[in-house]
Design a protein around this nucleic acid. Structure first.
Lengths: 169, 169
DNA sequence: TATTGTTATACTCTATAACTATA
DNA sequence: TATAGTTATAGAGTATAACAATA
């Protein structure tokens, strides 16, 4: 990614109560509370925390789920492409795929046209796992997006898509 | 935060080219690319990476910037409130404030009404630092939000605010 | 010479539990 | 008994550089 420094951002520390209705609500009046940077960080923190919780029974997390989803997508992504798309370092992809491969969800196949590159493909059991994981993630999304109407959710998605994928940055 | 598990999510690995226009653009057609979970993760990854890069000359990162911003907000937040609002573990707040205090940007003042609690207040030099940091962050935001019109940015903010701060979750 | 995947390493972030001091 | 802050520690995430194989 764009920054040579490691990534701090906001964490995912759980609380018994909730993300919003705690004593810190006083801080909502702050300038920070209306900065997009902070809002996306907090939204993703809440969202991935919930998704991770839902994925835990499947022994998956958001990162491995993303890899699995792309392996199941039929696009035959290479590890390099996965790294770029998920904004992870190529070295992180290695261990992510190692673990998925060890449990038989995914296979590394060498690309016939470029033998340096390895294509990541899902196995049958990987596709089954993905089907269940997808339900778990969708449920998490439903909870996270609960404050928004169906139309607003689409609106949010559309706006985020334009920010997350800039045409020719 | 809501999840008892640590946080994976997406990273902030830099690339020379960009976040969007790389070879992995093929993956845009996948289901994953339209999941809100993934979109917020990628958007915040891009955003905080850029913000961190802009904050680097001030020896700040998004996390310390957020603490500083709240310390400058006039709301006199306690460390506990900071932790809840920023969704960080209370133990993370300690070292974050330690570093800001060591450079004279912030002070711990014990609350007169509850001597267990410590209020975090900005010093004069802390406010100067914040003023400069805010410019840096705003510039980063401008770049990250470049694909959106002014009206769309407000729209995005409003939607994110409702997701990031649920009334009584 | 440049690129893909890999390994090793170090650094940061994050979570847990235990401690103290107050309440 | 419960809570705010702190410490220590372990674990996950992240970045860097170096290497082998291939282009």
């Amino acid at each position: 990614m764009p920054s040579p420094q490691p990534s701090p951002a906001l964490g995912e520390t759980p609380t018994e109560q909730a993300a919003g209705d705690d004593g810190a609500h006083r801080l909502l009046a702050t300038d920070l509370a209306s900065e997009v940077e902070f809002l996306t960080a907090r939204a993703r923190s809440i969202g991935t925390a919930r998704a991770n919780a839902n994925l835990a029974p499947l022994d998956l997390r958001v990162s491995s789920y993303c890899v699995l989803a792309l392996a199941c997508s039929g696009t035959n992504p290479s590890q390099r492409e996965l790294a770029e798309f998920l904004r992870l370092d190529p070295s992180q992809i290695v261990s992510l795929i190692d673990r998925l491969e060890n449990r038989g969800a995914v296979r590394r196949e060498s690309d016939v046209r470029d033998r340096r590159s390895k294509v990541v493909a899902a196995t049958a059991s990987g596709r089954t796992l993905y089907a269940r994981a997808r339900v778990a993630v969708r449920e998490a999304e439903d909870e996270s997006m609960a404050p928004l109407s169906a139309e607003e959710r689409l609106q949010l998605k559309a706006l985020l898509q334009r920010v997350a994928f800039v045409p020719s940055e």
